[in-house]
């Protein structure tokens, strides 16, 4: 049970949160300018690193705000 630092509520149990996957995958500004394979990259392809990973969380059972943090996927340590 990780202790996840919500920027609004402080450290809370992992079970209060909803996981949102890799952070920083923006909705493309011009979807029509993308080829099918570029669009598929946006839809389906995500990093899966062993080590630091910038990811999204939502404090769904708390303040309901989305935020990003960097977690080490090996140790579950929140790095920043």
């Amino acid at each position: 049970m990780m202790l996840i630092p919500c920027p609004w509520c402080g450290p809370r149990d992992e079970s209060e949160f909803h996981y949102g996957g890799q952070a920083g995958v923006a909705y493309p500004a011009e979807p029509d300018a993308l080829s099918d394979s570029e669009w598929a990259k946006y839809l389906f392809f995500r990093e899966n690193p062993k080590g630091p990973f910038r990811e999204r969380w939502s404090h769904s059972a708390g303040c309901r705000r989305w935020f990003s943090l960097v977690r080490d996927t090996v140790t579950n340590e929140v790095l920043r």
């Binding site: 909803h18 949102g20 923006a26 909705y27 999204r56 939502s58 769904s60 309901r64 705000r65 989305w66």
Partner: peptide, 11 residues
């Protein structure tokens, strides 16, 4: 509701 809030907050 989650879906609406996610798009409003993140995009």
């Amino acid at each position: 509701l989650d879906w609406m809030e996610e798009w409003l907050q993140t995009e």
